[in-house]
């Protein structure tokens, strides 16, 4: 793999940059480098955090010096094969796009001129790449929403958005893993618990995976509800 820059980020971290743009190509490079570090850690590694087009690599600067650590990373990067596309899994997330779970469906319908049925078809009709997780634990930054669905955020943010809520904010779509304030237009909710600190894997997906929203009915939502109703 080529086309990367290694920058210092203090005496305990470096930032490896794969271009300065939000694109699947840069993100795929960051993802394969991140996974290679997980699979075979280098000396001094503490952890790595992949983002849109970078991986920040945290290391113990008292164990290995910067130039030596950067050399190890460079060697690893050069040995990696380039991936054009993220090679993660596809995670299916059941979503109920009905009734109380879709409080802003009519807003989106009015703004886009699409019927709720068309909105659901467009929203669930493609897979979304997880560029990175951040802001909240398990909050995925998803790319690739159909532009016809673009709807501005609510003029006044909600004080509380229920966990599992699926929304649209401008050109992006996303899902709230835990209760949070927020201004996104909510068009559905998943009964799946996306984040649970007690689970062996606290968050169900990782950067580089793709999310597919699968429409379900209110009845199916209740049957699947892992929170036991709320």
């Amino acid at each position: 793999m080529e086309g990367f820059v290694i920058r210092q980020a203090g005496d305990m971290a470096v930032c490896v940059e794969f271009g300065n743009e939000v694109s699947e190509t840069c993100n795929a490079k960051a993802g394969s480098f991140y996974r290679s570090l997980l699979a075979a850690p280098v000396k001094g590694l503490i952890e790595a955090a992949p983002a849109f087009c970078t991986v920040t690599v945290y290391y113990d600067g008292s164990v290995i010096r910067y130039d030596r650590f950067a050399a190890l990373l460079r060697k690893r990067l050069l040995s990696l094969k380039e991936e054009k596309r993220a090679s993660g899994r596809t995670i299916e997330i059941p979503v109920c796009y009905e009734g109380d779970y879709a409080p802003d469906m009519m807003n989106v319908s009015q703004h886009t001129g699409l019927s709720p049925k068309e909105i659901i078809e467009l929203h669930s009709g493609r897979d979304y790449l997880i560029y990175m997780l951040g802001f909240l634990p398990g909050f995925p930054y998803l790319g690739g929403m159909d532009e016809r669905l673009s709807t501005p955020r609510l003029p006044a943010p909600r004080v509380r958005i229920e966990p599992g809520s699926v929304g649209i904010g401008g050109k992006q779509t996303g899902i709230y893993p835990l209760a949070s304030p927020g201004g996104w237009q909510l068009i559905g909710r998943t009964p799946v618990i996306l984040y649970d600190a007690k689970r062996e894997t606290p968050v169900l997906y990782e950067a580089g995976d793709r999310i597919r929203f699968v429409p379900i009915s209110k009845k199916e939502f209740d049957a699947l509800d892992e929170r036991g109703g709320n």
Partner: peptide
């Protein structure tokens, strides 16, 4: 910037 990682003391 395009969001990236933040180290302690950044």
């Amino acid at each position: 910037i395009i969001s990236n990682g933040i180290a302690f003391g950044a």
